[in-house]
Design a protein around this nucleic acid. Sequence first.
DNA 1: TGAGTGATTGACT
DNA 2: GTCAATCACTCAT
Length: 183
Amino acid sequence: MILTREFYLQKTEEVAKKLLGCYLMMESPDGKKIGKIVETEAYLALDPASHSYKGKNKRNSVMYGEAGYLYVYLIYGVHYCINIVTAKKDTAEAVLIRAVEPIENINEPTNGPSKLAKAYGITLEDNGVDITKKPLCILSNDHFGIQENFKIIATPRIGITKAANLNLRYYIKNNKFVSGKKV
DNA sequence: TGAGTGATTGACT
DNA sequence: GTCAATCACTCAT
């Protein structure tokens, strides 16, 4: 079952946690790609680490829109990062998808924000896409009839230079597809 | 119009 | 452990 827009209207931290174990699905010409989300980060309004901190601009405008849309941006001129917009209109919050576990039709590593985007073939072209409907959407964690038990770990976020002390990164304990050099 | 910045990764010392 | 690569965008001339 595809997660609805109501899901993304929950508190951003809650969305980030609940997305763990859900499935990111993309229907592409190559076939249906599915990966289980194992690592996320929350970015809040007025968060110095968030792109929305300095106010609305062209790059982050998607974050100011409605929940349930994809926010893609290019970092360091080389890497794409994928976010899911949360909260209501004009509230710029989002959840960064950092890593997924390959389930179907994914034959590249996905243990990092950029690798994940590459594996799905996501680029700036997909910025602003509605993820409550196909071809790109997120399936609830009981989609395959398996309700897994896993422990969620909260740690400081990775790779940012501001507000790096907040525990807004969440990942599934003991999952080997989680990114990061150090455990 | 030009310099500076960045939510990363992989190659190299 | 350190560092370069290289694009979109902002901010400062």
